[in-house]
Write a protein that binds this DNA or RNA. Structure first.
Length: 593
DNA sequence: GATTTCACGTA
DNA sequence: CGTACGTGAAATCC
């Protein structure tokens, strides 16, 4: 909007600094935002802070004028921005990039600072109750620090715990210094990424993971459209109408229990919620089981009617305890949005996670996920993403050829001389670490047919077993090495093997998560102008909420964004990735579902 | 009261 | 004796 007044007009020195920043593509701008205090921005040329009055407007002006890559310390800033109505295009989240580089989920500013500066992490100063020793340290620090006892850094070079714990937002001057430190750390992280020559995609991953952090903040704030009436109808189908009081709830529960207990041995009090008591009950009825998991019980369904009753009870109990009326009251807002907290990276293999049941909602509730009036969903899910990712990251040309069709398992089955189902089990087993069972023959043939891919998996498993850190294709560190200073724990063979399976899976699952997130943030960026919003990410599935008139256009974009994501993630790869995409009214309307 | 175990939902 | 996560209830451990 030329001629419109911008907050930047009031701050010419800041405008000049940003102008220089704009000359650099992807220019980093440090941000420290505490709306009740003020805002600070920093470029490589200097830092600037102003009070609370216009903090959010200033950020919006800079976004419009420069569209910088906003450098923030943690995801909390992204949430603060979204809650203030600020949706920015690009980010560099220091915590997110730290996790990528160093592994683990622990990425407080103190840790991030220390890692970036090569300071030992086991030397991190601690906040908390003062004992004689720590107060002596503080006195010493203040004395040595001389002119700046109030600054962010101790004499040892570490961030002061008080700053890291939130003291950075105590004043505009502190915000200013905090934003300047952010820029410094971002520069060091970029150097570390550039030095990682064996993982050329790592810098890309850092950018997309940072954008995923912005997306997660938006999904956390926006929520998932859900029709309360439909949801309550589904719940009622399992556990009856909403109980009017505690007594009614208890009565309904007793009634559900009774439907199972009528098959139980008489004169015996069985708590169906206690696996031990259920196991004992089954034993009395002549059914001996190692555990009472659903899968095991299903094989016994024909032996006694109590089993079917128990399985139905479990299903209802899951709804009653986890996805019932209380869940709706807690997570479904009056605006018809189901909300949980989204995290862009789970700390292990790098998948997104969501709380509030958003990632493990029973499929029966999907009909309640309904697009709002005048809107549709574009639902898209990646087909057979893990074996395709394996083909790409391992560089196995034979496996890459198998990805060219819509169904990867058909050509694999043909090549192995087995049926499709056996081929699928073998491929999945190889990625999950299955070593026993009757898949041994298929596994051997798999190794013969796709030696490069199999060697890639074996190497990952070996590293993990030996306690060596892994890096995914996109550069994410998956930690297996014992923490510095800690001695390797004594482990039995089972634990070592379990770690091997984890490592084997992590390089595939983690790389798939990277590709998925690049896809998601590309969709976020490319479809925003249509009014489209990603409202759910489910590992290989995207749900986009979009005005009805743009449904088809958004669907086409989701498809082209996948191509773009693949090109950016693995330039020149011969592997083909496919997505099923549909324009639907409710989440349950997915084709084939 | 905090942690672990079991179970089950999603991928 | 294939993976990951989040959640709730019971069991267990202070």
């Amino acid at each position: 909007m030329p001629g419109a007044h911008s907050e930047l007009d009031d701050h010419p020195e800041l405008a000049a600094a940003l102008e220089r920043c704009r000359a650099v593509p992807g220019g980093l701008v440090g941000l420290a935002l505490e709306p009740s205090v003020g805002v600070a921005v920093a470029t490589a040329h200097g830092s600037f802070a102003t009070g609370a009055e216009d903090s959010c407007r200033l950020v919006a002006s800079i976004e419009q004028a420069v569209r910088p890559r906003w450098v923030t310390w943690t995801s909390a800033t992204a949430l603060t921005m979204v809650r203030a109505g600020l949706r920015v295009a690009r980010g560099w989240n220091l915590a997110t990039v730290h996790c990528l580089l160093a592994g683990g989920a622990d990425a407080g500013p103190d840790r991030v600072w220390a890692q970036a500066h090569g300071l030992a992490l086991d030397g991190l100063p601690r906040a908390g109750p003062r004992d004689l020793f720590s107060s002596w340290q503080d006195d010493e620090a203040d004395r040595v620090d001389g002119p700046d006892p109030d600054g962010p850094l101790g004499p040892d070079g570490y961030l002061r715990p008080e700053w890291a714990a939130g003291g950075w937002r105590a004043s505009t001057e502190r915000l200013r210094r905090w934003s300047a430190l952010a820029i410094e750390v971002a520069g060091l992280q970029q150097l570390a990424l550039a030095a990682m020559t064996s993982r050329p995609a790592a810098a890309m991953t850092a950018r997309s993971e940072s954008a995923a952090e912005l997306l997660c903040a938006e999904m956390t704030v926006d929520g998932l459209p859900m029709a309360r009436a439909v949801a309550e109808r589904v719940v009622a189908g399992f556990i009856g109408p909403r109980p009017s009081d505690d007594a009614a709830a208890a009565a309904a529960r007793a009634e559900r229990d009774a439907a199972v207990l009528r098959f139980a041995p008489p004169g015996r009090d069985v708590d169906l919620r206690s696996p031990a008591q259920v196991k004992e009950m089954l034993h009395v009825l002549g059914l001996d089981v190692a555990d009472t998991r659903t899968g095991r019980l299903r094989t016994l369904e024909h032996r006694h009617p109590v089993v079917a009753a128990l399985l139905a009870w479990r299903r209802a109990e899951r709804i009653a305890t986890t996805f019932g009326y209380e869940w709706l009251d807690e997570h479904l807002g009056p605006d018809g949005r189901l909300r949980g907290t989204w995290t862009s990276c789970d700390g292990a293999a790098g998948r997104m996670t969501a709380s509030g049941g958003l990632h493990n909602m029973p499929a029966e509730l999907r009909p309640a996920v309904v697009a709002e009036p005048g809107h549709v969903f574009v639902r898209a899910d990646l087909g057979q993403i893990e074996p395709r990712v394996l083909a790409a990251v391992s560089g196995d040309e034979a496996l890459a050829r198998a990805t060219l069709g819509g169904d990867l398992y058909a050509p694999v089955a043909e090549r192995l001389g087995i049926d499709r189902q056996a081929a699928k089990v073998a491929v999945l087993g190889a990625m999950y670490g299955q070593t026993s069972g009757n898949g041994a023959i298929a596994l051997r043939r798999l190794t013969g047919a796709y030696p490069v891919a199999m060697a890639y998996l074996d190497r990952a498993a070996r590293f993990a077993e030996q306690g060596r850190d892994l890096r995914t294709y996109g550069g994410r560190c998956v930690r297996f090495a014992p923490a510095p200073g800690a001695e390797a724990a004594v482990e039995d063979r089972r634990a070592v093997a379990a770690r091997g399976r984890y490592g084997r899976n992590a390089v595939v699952q983690g790389a798939a998560a990277e590709l998925f997130k690049i896809w998601a943030v590309t969709v976020r960026e490319r479809s925003a102008h249509l009014g489209a919003r990603i409202v759910l990410c489910l590992h290989d599935e995207l749900l986009v909420h979009v005005p009805s008139e743009h449904g088809d256009a958004a669907a086409r974009l989701v498809s082209s964004c996948l191509d773009e994501a693949v090109r950016r993630w693995a330039p020149g790869t011969a592997v083909r990735f496919v997505a099923e995409i549909g324009v639907i009214a409710t989440w349950a309307d997915a084709k084939g579902a």
